[in-house]
Write a protein that binds this DNA or RNA. Structure first.
Length: 647
DNA sequence: TTAGGGTTAG
């Protein structure tokens, strides 16, 4: 038997003979073993590549070793390039073309690359070429093709691939193919087809279940998601996270936290994705108690905000939504890495709290870094300008966003501009801007105009905005109420009746006003408008009357135009007294220590009368009061609000 | 080769 050094052997082999080497059985066993070791080593080198230059170096090494036709190694090279998001043309494509006898794995690596990057149809064309050359696909040729169908949202193509999986080699019963089929149907919006695939699968794993759970959660059907989850025999971290996130994304934060508690009780580990769902749930609850708790959980799980940019950004958003922009900024300041999410969340946070100067400063700071602003960043800065009445600055930003930063204004940005002009009382200009929009205005645009009409008392223009809104958002109860209130403030009671009648005909019911306030030990107390069910109702009422008496002594008069009913002034005063945020304020003053900030969350927009009472209360009690209504935050300090009475 | 994620205006 001829013995020779493998390295020398591979080195002296003519480069075109690699295929022969693979197929000739007379090559000694030891040589084939050595070769396999070398291939595996190269694959692991490629696995560790984090930059295209490293891949190119590895590629040169592959050449030096005479392995430039080795499909096993080159398929890994292509997968690495795809992972690094290197465009398929020209480099990865060229690598493939230089191989004389590409095997199904190499074909698939190329098909997968196009499926993930586009153009997606190239995957299908390649698949056809492969078939024409008589090469049979492997299971992940189909998973790659199905990914291309999902990315192209082409369910018809997906169905064709589905048929192929059944016709060729029985891949229809492959677990990976089945799971990817579910995913494809779901992404293309055919949840029913996805569920049918799931039902027909002979073999299912936790991924099959999770794909379907996520699909139901995404369409808002948490009951179906929950039923599936309960039936899932082996629940892993991803499946639990899908449920936490599902509830959070469907505005059911309490249930999200309940699932998370069960997850922890079951001893399942938590990672950054789970935390993001939990943080989002806490942000929705808006309570400082939960905010600090989840921050501790993140630290304990090893995903603290300092080192983890995703968790950090989510925490910035959460603290801002929980009323503590200071804590949000502390997180931001300490982050080791910041990206567009971190900056945007912080800018939006500042804007939400009326800190336009800080928002603009941070935006300027961001421009000095390599982080490019995106559409959300611009929504943040435009909102900041809007709430601070900085019209010219907002107009300058809007004018340059596309030219200087490559972000084309969307309907949402136009909505910000309508809000900016409208709040500043420039209603005609706002309406003209809507008429000049290059795209059809959406509900946000007309809603901004309607809101401005409320601030500036313009029932005629409100009628125009509302007529569009009633078409675009036929069930948007808020629009009907806003129009009705605008008519009421103008004393147009006949029009108020018409809007109310329309609401009755459509079966729309007004949500009752509700406020939450944190009492002692972080316990949340809930108050509805006119609610006398709280055990301390009598004391609360008395405290509120005392407070209002003191305020009246200083010149406060109830703002009767805040009441949208045609009733006597006395009745109006009584109704104003019963607003939920006033009850919450009185309870907060009664039960928390002097010096403590009172934090109130309200489900509807705060009315003008309550706003002035909060201002006055902050002055005479020396307390800081933070109110989060359904629009924004109001920080009341020493008789002033961060919104400058402009909301 | 297959499943879960962060910022959005009225």
């Amino acid at each position: 038997m001829v013995k020779f050094c493998t390295k020398t052997c591979l080195f002296i082999l003519p480069k075109t003979s690699y295929h022969q080497l693979q197929t000739q059985s007379f090559i000694p066993f030891s040589v084939r073993q050595e070769q396999k070791i070398l291939e595996s080593r190269l694959v692991s080198v490629l696995h560790g590549c984090t930059h295209i230059n490293q891949v190119k170096q590895a590629h040169a090494h592959i050449f030096r070793k005479g392995l430039e036709h080795c499909c096993f190694v080159l398929a890994k090279l292509l997968r690495t390039l795809t992972k690094l998001d290197v465009p398929m043309d020209p480099y990865p494509r060229l690598v493939f073309q230089q191989v004389e006898y590409p095997n199904p794995f190499l074909w698939t690596a190329l098909i997968r690359g196009y499926a993930l990057q586009g153009p997606f149809m190239e995957s299908v064309l390649l698949y056809n070429s492969m078939r024409r050359q008589g090469i049979g696909p492997v299971s992940f040729t189909f998973t790659a093709l199905l990914k291309a169908c999902s990315a192209a949202l082409d369910v018809n193509l997906g169905r064709q691939v589905h048929t192929q999986t059944i016709l060729i080699g029985g891949f229809g019963s492959d677990l990976y193919v089945g799971n990817t089929l579910i995913d494809m149907y779901v992404k293309c919006g055919c949840l029913g087809c996805g569920h049918r695939v799931f039902d027909e699968m002979l073999d299912r794993d936790v991924i099959s279940w999770t794909s379907l759970i996520v699909a139901y959660a995404k369409v808002g059907n948490m009951e179906a998601a929950s039923e599936l989850f309960d039936g899932l025999p082996m629940k892993d971290m991803v499946a639990w996270t899908a449920m936490v996130t599902g509830y959070a994304q469907n505005a059911r934060p309490r249930e999200a936290l309940e699932v998370f508690e069960r997850m922890q009780a079951a001893g399942v580990k938590t990672d950054e994705v789970t935390l993001v769902g939990v943080i989002s749930a806490c942000a929705q609850l808006g309570a400082a108690k939960y905010a600090n708790w989840v921050r501790d959980v993140a630290e304990q799980s090893g995903f603290g905000p300092t080192s983890n940019v995703v968790v950090g950004s989510a925490l910035i958003d959460m603290y801002a939504k929980c009323g503590s922009v200071e804590d949000a900024y502390k997180v931001f300041e300490r982050m080791e890495e910041r990206n567009v999410y971190s900056y945007s969340s912080m800018i939006v946070g500042f804007a939400m709290h009326g800190l336009a100067g800080a928002a603009m400063e941070l935006f300027d700071e961001m421009l000095k870094t390599e982080t490019k602003p995106n559409r959300v960043t611009f929504i943040g800065v435009l909102t900041a300008c809007s709430h601070a009445g900085r019209v010219e600055q907002g107009q300058r930003l809007f004018a340059m966003m596309e030219e200087c930063h490559g972000v084309a204004p969307s309907e949402d940005h136009y909505a910000c501009m309508v809000d900016l002009l409208g709040r500043a009382g420039r209603l005609e200009e706002a309406l003209n801007l809507v008429k000049m929009m290059p795209m059809n205005p959406h509900g946000g645009v007309w809603g901004a105009l309607l809101g401005a009409c409320r601030i500036h008392g313009n029932p005629d223009m409100a009628q125009i905005a509302a007529s569009h809104l009633f078409e675009l958002e036929p069930n948007g109860i808020g629009n009907f109420i806003l129009l009705s209130n605008i008519y009421a403030s103008a004393g147009r009671w006949d029009d108020v009746s018409k809007v109310r009648k329309l609401m009755r005909v459509k079966g729309l019911k007004k949500n009752p006003g509700c406020s939450w306030v944190e009492g002692k030990k972080g316990i949340i107390h809930e108050f509805f408008a006119g609610d006398m069910s709280h055990p301390k109702s009598r004391e609360i009422k008395q405290a509120l009357e005392d407070l209002l008496d003191r305020l009246m002594y200083l010149g406060y008069q109830p703002n009767l135009s805040s009441v949208a009913y045609d009733i006597s002034d006395e009745e109006k005063k009584r109704l104003l007294m019963s607003h939920s945020e006033k009850l919450a304020l009185a309870f907060g003053l009664l039960t928390t220590n002097a010096g403590c900030t009172i934090r109130i969350v309200k489900n509807l927009r705060i009315c003008e009368d309550c706003h002035s009472v909060m201002c006055g209360a902050s002055q005479i009690t020396g307390r800081e009061i933070v109110v989060r209504d359904n629009m924004r935050f109001h920080h009341f300090r020493n008789g002033r609000c961060s919104c400058d009475n402009f909301w």
